[in-house]
Design a binder for these strands. Structure first.
Length: 748
DNA sequence: TCCTCACGGGG
DNA sequence: GTGTACGTGAGGA
């Protein structure tokens, strides 16, 4: 029997090797299976390998054993390894764990690989791949042909059947009363008060629509565990899985360190034969939605359920593993060395990082913003930087064949560029635009992390010297760009890692910057782009000392009216929505000025707007939710030496028996008196007059002053200007005359 | 003034 | 199944 369709998921089976789920073009859902033996390797002293051989011969299901010569990326020549061939993929992890206990001193390869990656490397598959399969009546897979590739821009869309499940409120905040189940145009309300009807109805919905994907809110951390408990209590079967006779797979909650901060990931519930995604427990869901999630799965080779819940680091690592497997390179077992504290010398040597030039603070007109496109990945590909390749001698070129890391990155970078080019030609209404944006966001994260992964001790294909080479060439590229700009008569206002801000008398249109772009491309061999031309941009000084510039704190308006902002309150995730909103509104006010001579009027409007919002605050017209701030917990409650606002709120929750883990965000309101905060997830919401509106007022004034500082209005001036007290207004006059006059804007 | 804690980045 | 380091800034003793 021949069938064409899309590969949904794949998992192991105790006797049937691997089970594949296919969404057939004719609407059927096929369960296919195929024997799938796997091989892993051990290397080390001959005597110990012989001991391992004897150990394995004594095992109940003796695996086949052969000696082979294979390539380890980190060693010259070939390595002698004992290949261990396991007939059933499902039994490999347990066997490896037993071996590891007895022979911890050996080196292992291909020993801890995700089944999906092994299968993908062997058969060229990936999640959502369009395939043609031949199978027997009872589902034995005889042949499989992949019809598309993860690098296509518009692959045929898989006909995913999606069932949405969500409670009527956040279960952490309040007690939900019903669940809504939505499948296309069908909507069902399932009351949580009556367990049996709920289960019976949900079962009917699952059987009627047979969804491929359960898209839930809080499904991992609350809903699915609850449903499973109910089903057990009522002794009613609930077919969440398609695969019969298999329970769901729980993965424990945990906090881990990544990107310089603690990340919390809640418990997970994975299904078999169906996928489950909890939008509140998926890494990047807010960034790239379902399309981005599908793209991540397609290009990393990780099953959809796994891909959405893991960090981009795991994604990029999977891509490298695929490259290695396909090239017959051994994949080292994940080294689990704990991070050792670095000495000062190490830090000096390795971590020079990106180049930063302090900005010239204040307001500038007609500023070009020039960016290297995906700078670090481009350097890795163009200079061929990889753990096994020699250190490059030149920027943007390499005489050697591409190494593992550049090989992995090149198609990804290429697809990203193709999508960006297409974005310039697609009309605004084209639905592909939105999709391309999601794909782009998914790619961006993988590209960003691949650089860090080079320098990560526990990465399988990491090497600190390679990491260092990337930053070295990055600094070199930025320096050459600066020289190019200055040689062509531009003033460099600011540089930050992969971007520079430049201006030159009479340069206010894209063509004026073209010779500079070409010169930079010529001198660096790296792709470079003009991000835009700022009508105006303001680089802010330090708040501690107004005379000092600080990098990457700025805001400006491009010629097309869009704004770009870094470092100020509206970019911070611990600002209250109210503060973010007003600061954004004020900026939009300033952005309305098409010419410099309209700025003064716009500044006045922004101040009026601020007055208005302060009055809203004073008179209680701000929705209380807009005053809630989220603070991330960096440690266990007991670890706090100084109780931060976040920790204070967690104390309150702990008293109610609600606990939060490091990496989770605690939501709170600022209140008058002690304690200064009120946790938002407490049962009662405080009355309006308990709120510390004075503090919110301070926060808002501070945020407003950040926006208005470049226009000559400091916090004190602003404070007086917006106060409704006549005496204070008089003070303002004195203060302003005593200090400096408001800046006059000279049209450039 | 010093210490602790939280945040950003990429687009 | 997890890039690191660093600088800025706020709050409180």
């Amino acid at each position: 029997m021949q069938t064409t369709g899309w590969l949904l998921d794949l998992h192991d089976h105790p006797h049937q090797g691997v089970v594949l789920w296919l969404m057939a073009e004719d609407g059927r859902r096929l369960r296919l299976h195929q024997p799938f033996p796997v091989t892993f390797y051990a290397a080390g002293a001959d005597s110990r390998l012989q001991a391992l051989e004897e150990f394995l011969r004594a095992q109940p299901h003796t695996p086949a054993l052969t000696y082979q010569e294979r390539r380890d990326l980190f060693r010259p020549g070939l390595v002698s390894v004992l290949a261990i061939h396991v007939a059933q993929a499902a039994s490999q992890p347990a066997l490896f764990r037993r071996i590891l206990q007895v022979f911890p001193e050996l080196d292992y390869y291909d020993a801890d690989l995700h089944l999906a990656l092994r299968y993908a490397a062997l058969h060229g598959t990936f999640p959502m791949a369009h395939c043609r399969v031949v199978s027997t009546e009872d589902g034995l897979l005889q042949s499989l042909q992949v019809l598309d590739s993860p690098w296509e821009l518009d692959p045929p869309a898989p006909p995913l059947r999606i069932l949405n499940l969500r409670p009527d409120c956040d279960p952490q905040h309040a007690q939900p009363t019903y669940i809504s189940a939505v499948y296309e145009k069908h909507e069902y309300h399932l009351s949580l008060n009556e367990e049996r009807p709920l289960l019976v109805n949900l079962r009917a919905i699952l059987q009627r629509h047979d969804p491929d994907l359960l898209l839930t809110a809080y499904g991992d951390t609350w809903l699915l565990p609850l449903l499973i408990k109910m089903a057990a209590r009522q002794r009613l079967p609930l077919p969440l899985n398609r695969e019969a006779g298999r329970g769901v797979l729980y993965k424990k909650e945990g906090s881990y360190f990544s990107y310089g901060q603690i990340i919390y990931r809640g418990q997970q519930v994975h299904l078999f034969g169906r996928c489950h995604i909890d939008g509140h427990n998926a890494m990047m869901w807010q960034e790239y939605d379902l399309q981005g999630a599908l793209e991540t799965a397609r290009i990393t080779g990780l099953p959809l359920q796994v891909a959405v819940r893991t960090s981009p680091g795991t994604g990029i690592s999977s891509m490298q593993i695929l490259t290695a497997l396909r090239n017959g390179i051994l994949v080292p077992w994940r080294k689990q060395q704990p991070e050792q504290p670095k000495t000062a010398l190490d830090l000096l040597r390795y971590d020079q990082g990106g180049l930063v030039y302090q900005p010239i603070t204040g307001l500038h007109f007609n500023v070009g913003m020039i960016d290297f496109i995906s700078m670090y990945p481009s350097i890795m590909v163009k200079c061929n930087i990889s753990p096994e390749t020699p250190r490059p001698a030149e920027l943007g070129r390499s005489p050697y064949p591409p190494g593992l890391v550049p090989q992995t990155l090149a198609p990804l970078l290429q697809k990203r560029v193709a999508l960006k080019q297409r974005a310039l030609t697609l009309p605004r209404w084209d639905p592909r635009r939105r999709r391309d944006k999601s794909l782009s966001a998914a790619h961006k994260w993988l590209l960003v992390t691949c650089f860090g992964y080079l320098g990560y001790k526990n990465a399988r294909f990491g090497r600190i010297e390679a990491h260092e080479a990337v930053t070295t060439w990055g600094r070199e590229a930025l320096l050459r760009a600066k020289e190019a700009a200055e040689d062509l008569g531009f003033t460099v206002l600011h540089m930050y890692v992969d971007g520079l801000w430049v201006k030159k008398e009479g340069c206010n249109q894209v063509p004026h910057f073209r010779p500079l772009l070409e010169e930079i491309a010529l001198r660096t061999n790296l792709p470079v782009t003009l991000d835009g031309i700022f009508r105006w941009v303001a680089f802010l000084p330090s708040r501690v000392d107004e005379r000092l510039p600080v990098p990457n704190r700025y805001f400006g308006v491009f010629q097309d009216g869009t704004t770009k902002v870094r470092g100020i309150e509206l970019r911070r995730r611990d600002s209250a929505p109210f503060i973010t909103r007003v600061q954004t509104e004020m900026l939009a006010c300033l952005a309305r000025a098409e010419h410099a001579d309209q700025l003064t009027a716009c500044v006045e409007q922004a101040v009026d707007l601020l007055r208005c919002r302060l009055r809203d605050l004073r008179e209680g017209r701000v929705p209380i939710e807009d005053l809630v701030v989220g603070k991330k917990l960096s440690k266990e409650l007991a670890g706090y030496r100084v109780p931060s606002h976040g920790a204070l709120a967690v104390y309150q929750l702990a008293a109610q028996g609600k606990s939060l883990r490091p990496g989770q965000r605690v939501r709170l309101l600022y209140t008058r008196g002690q304690p200064r905060v009120h946790a938002w997830d407490l049962p009662e919401i405080p009355p309006w007059d308990a709120l510390d509106t004075d503090y919110y007022r301070t926060l808002l004034l501070r945020a407003a002053a950040a926006i208005l500082q470049p226009f000559g209005m400091d916090e004190r001036t602003l404070e007086i200007k917006v106060s409704e007290d006549l005496g204070q207004q008089l003070q303002l006059l004195n203060y302003v005359t005593a200090c400096k006059p408001l800046i006059k804007f000279e049209p450039p």
